Structure formats: structure tokens, C-alpha cells
Amino acid sequence: MRIAILDDYSDTLRTLPCFTKLAGHDVTVFTDHVQDAGALAERLRDIEALVLIRERTRIEAALLERLPGLRLISQFGGYPHIDVAACTRHGVVVSSELSGGGTSHGTAELTWGLLIAAARRIPQQMASLRAGGWQESVGTTLHGKTLGILGYGRIGTAVAGYATAFGLRVVVWSGEESRRRAAADGHAVAESQRALFAGSDAVSLHVKLTDATRGIVTAADLAAMAPSAILVNTSRAGLIEPGALPAALRAGRPGVAAVDVFDAEPLHDPQDPLLSLDNVVATPHIGYVTREDYERQFASAFEQIVAFAGGEPINVVNPEVLAMRQ
């Protein structure tokens, strides 16, 4: 099959052990980001299978209409960036591993990296040192503080485990079943989402972005946080009400944000409202960008291609397409 891999910014996938699964196929790797439908259609005009790196490129009807040879889209994880209905109309199978693959420890670890960096003002201390200065401020000790976790899935659970090791009290707000599991794990459960934000020294977001969760964190939630509190978001920027986080940070509640995700990605604007604030620690959506997480996720994506090529598609999101082909 003629296969294209999009948005491999660091040209990493071909160096992974799992890349050998595609041996015998004609594979093209693109390391830049293109969203324009016309430009994408030009570079993908002869492609039969498309491999996506999470949500970096949106796959919409306008693009699919120009790719009559496309037969398969393969990826790992959720697919809010894919117009599945349009894929079905155009006879394109969407395969995505959703339930397996384990926890993204890379994202859980980055959550703690960002939290510690924000609490100890590591970026500011580095900037001072590089400018010829010395200690520029006094940081905050996390031990003994309360960490609020919004969303107690695989990553939220891992973050809670790290919190216990660091000596923090964990409070959770999540779906009913997840709240029961958090309590069984020995963590406190908040009375409400608002109470979680109001009563935590730091709040970390670990909720999947869906139509139901978009904007779930409101300006009122952020305003309930203490001026000394830290908000950490390694999940998705769309979980927060549009414009609410920069406004809240300018108002001083919370006092600091540590983020790995943005409304528009890739973000190349240094004047972005979040990047222009001194009380923000930011990274360019690198939570899952580790060799270990890549190997786990793309082993799945490549296995889906092998299965499709062998006539036995797996992890099919839109099985109606298979029925149409029979």
C-alpha cells in the first residue's frame, strides 16, 4: 500500500522498532504541518492509507472529496479531528485503538514536571541565571498541599499516584464510577467540580475532549481558585471555556498556569495570550511525545494497516464501510 504519515515533526517514527511492521509498503513521512485542503490533497493524491499523529491534522469532508484513492485512516486514540461521517460516505475505513495500549506515562510525568516547574519557578530561575543573575524569587513546596484532579482515568490515576509519593493530599472530581474508584484508592472526593477548584492548591485536568466536555472548566471555576493556586493542563485546551484562562491569570486567580496544550496547534505566535503572560509555564504539546509512548501508540496504528492490507481490518470506528464493500 502507498502510505503517508503526517506531522512527524521530529522525523522519529521511522527510527522506532515498530516501523518495521510497514516493511514492504511504500511509506512517505511528512515532517511539516499542512492543514489547507488543497495543499494536503496535492501531497496525498496517490495515497491509499493515512497515518495520523493524534489530532495534529483535521480530516474534513473538503479534503476527503479530493482523495478518491484513500482507503484507510489509521491512528491511536480519540478522533474528534476526523469527520467520520464523511469518511463513511467516501468509503474510507477509520481504524483507531481506543481501549488498549495502557497509560501514557509520558503525559503523567510531564504533568508533574510542569507542576514542579511552576511551583519552583524553574523557567524564571533559569532565565535569571542565564542573564547573569542569581535567585530571582522564592518557590513553593508541594509536600502537604492538596492536588485536585479533574478526571480520574488512566492518566489521572497515575498522576494521583505520583502525588501520594510527593506527599500531597489528592481530591478528585470525575464521573460517578471514577469517583467511586478514586475513593476505593484512598483519595478524597470533592463535593462538586466548583469545590475541587476552590479547595485545591493545584488542579490538574485529565478529561477527554468531547462535545460534552468542551468548555467544562468555566471562568467561574477558575475564579474560585486561590491566588496562590496552580492550574495544570496536559489534556486539551478546549476543556476550558474560550478566553477564560488568560483572563483568569490576568485577574490573579489562579496565580499560575502550567500548560502543554493550546487552542490552535501547532502554535507559532509568541504573542499568543498565554505565552505573553509571565505567570505561565508552557510546553508545545509534548505530553505523549516520548519514544516509549510513540512505540506503544504507533505499533497499534501500524498493526491496523497490516490487518487492513491482509483483508481483516481491526479497531474499525465506522464498520458501515465494511458492509458497503461486501
Rank of each mutant, 00 (worst) to 15 (best):
R71T: 08
L322M: 07
E177M: 08
G132H: 03
A190G: 05
V93Y: 00
R296A: 14
V171H: 06
P273L: 15
Q271H: 14
Q35D: 15
S178P: 02
E48Q: 13
D46K: 08
N315Q: 00
A182R: 11
T157V: 11
I149Q: 00
L52V: 02
V316G: 12
R291A: 07
S96Y: 09
R169V: 05
Q297K: 13
R236G: 08
Y152I: 09
M324I: 05
L196W: 01
V321N: 03
S128L: 07
L72M: 07
G186I: 00
L52G: 04
A131I: 00
S128K: 10
K21G: 02
T20D: 09
V34Q: 07
E177S: 13
S137N: 11
R43A: 09
V138E: 06
L322C: 02
A158K: 06
F166I: 04
G133N: 04
E241G: 13
S137Q: 15
V29S: 00
P270H: 11
G175S: 12
A212I: 03
L50S: 04
I73K: 04
S174N: 01
W134M: 09
T146D: 00
I3F: 10
I73P: 04
E320M: 10
P242H: 08
P270R: 10
A182G: 10
F19T: 05
D269T: 13
G101D: 09
G167E: 05
S228D: 13
G186N: 03
E136L: 10
A258Q: 01
D46C: 01
A41N: 04
H33Q: 04
L142Y: 07
V170F: 03
T283A: 14
R130N: 03
A248Q: 13
A119G: 00
H143Q: 14
G133L: 05
H90Y: 10
A118C: 01
L72T: 06
E55T: 03
L147I: 11
